[in-house]
Design a protein around this nucleic acid. Structure first.
Lengths: 189, 189
DNA sequence: CCGCTTGCCTAAACCCATTAGGTAGATGCA
DNA sequence: TGCATCTACCTAATGGGTTTAGGCAAGCGG
């Protein structure tokens, strides 16, 4: 019996690929075992259970996404930064729908604290430096941006915009124009 | 053997309640059978399969949500209408998290066409009548509003805002203020 | 080169989904 | 009211996913 060389990392990586192929909630310990040509029970030495596997994939995706975002943001400010960050989320979701879905997996507070979640909100907040928002309004604006990004990407991924004119790309561009205008003209409390 | 009086409607209704209690993706044919004190196989005379059950719950939820929205919109315009509609979504999600999740279930194109989905976009579009947007921009604005509503509610439901100041309610209010301001000052293409 | 760790296995229990085919309670018609 | 029919619910069986307990051997450390 040759050893397959399983590790939690390889399982997580393969799980992420599987998610992109068949969808995040079709990611199954059994299917993963099949792909490694190994019996199901063997995975349980590396991963606590099915939920643990999914949480690992979620953490991986959040890291990848944060890395891409950091790259995209480097050297940019203002609307340029806003558009770049927004496109990171949208492009990632289109290239890696399973991983994107994973990034929306509900983590425990401990897992969330150890995740790249903090980097994400930091980066969104960084974008606001290019605009002139009162301190007290910044969190609201961060939450708005998060809502629009995840909301739009989610709807687009569910096929919400795919069968009606105008093309989704056009709305996306105009929505980012609008958000930029809004941040430049944020209403007084 | 007394008859339990199963119908697709009663199953759908009970499924919706179950969803609110245990979460939409924990809604299972087996659990439903248990609640009706009936064998699992019996449900298959009324519902095609598990997916069919979930789709029915989704359609039910979309209808309920559209009914509430229509109520809330009656006699309102402008910001008043915007805030009312937004609150319908948010309140529904908080009162009925399982049904809300169900309303995001991916329907087939046929199911979607027969759903209340159309009413929803009509109502969002109706809100824009209180603002002065060029025809060509309306769809973009509708998509933005949909993204913010579903994005915010989704993040809030996942607990994204629950453990950090300021309170979610405050952000929600400010975000609606901001959307109102944006719609009144929509940037030229 | 030998012993111990540990990586992968077999076996088994349990839950959910789904289908085929049976039985008895409800319904309709004379 | 009595009979035939229909159909609502049942039993039984299959197959897939999850998870745990306990075994054997591969390969590393001494």
């Amino acid at each position: 019996m040759a050893r397959a060389g399983l590790t939690a990392e390889r399982l997580t990586q393969a799980g992420a690929e599987l998610a992109d192929e068949v969808g995040f909630d079709q990611v199954t310990v059994s299917e993963l075992a099949r792909r490694f040509d190994v019996k199901v029970a063997s995975l349980y030495s590396h991963v606590r259970n099915s939920r643990d596997l999914k949480a690992r994939i979620a953490l991986l995706s959040l890291e990848e996404l944060a890395d891409r975002a950091a790259d995209a943001l480097a050297g940019r400010a203002g609307k340029d930064a806003l558009v770049s960050l927004a496109n990171v989320y949208r492009d990632y979701a289109r290239e890696h729908p399973g991983r994107y879905a994973a990034s929306r997996f509900r983590l425990t507070p401990q897992e969330a604290a150890a995740s790249a979640g903090g980097r994400h909100s930091q980066m969104t907040r960084a974008i606001l430096r290019g605009y002139d928002l009162p301190e007290a309004e910044q969190t609201h604006a961060v939450r708005l941006l998060g809502s629009v990004f995840h909301g739009y990407v989610g709807l687009e991924l569910e096929g919400g915009f795919s069968h009606s004119a105008p093309a989704s790309q056009e709305s996306w561009t105009r929505i980012l124009d609008a958000l930029d205008a809004l941040l430049r003209n944020w209403p007084a409390p």
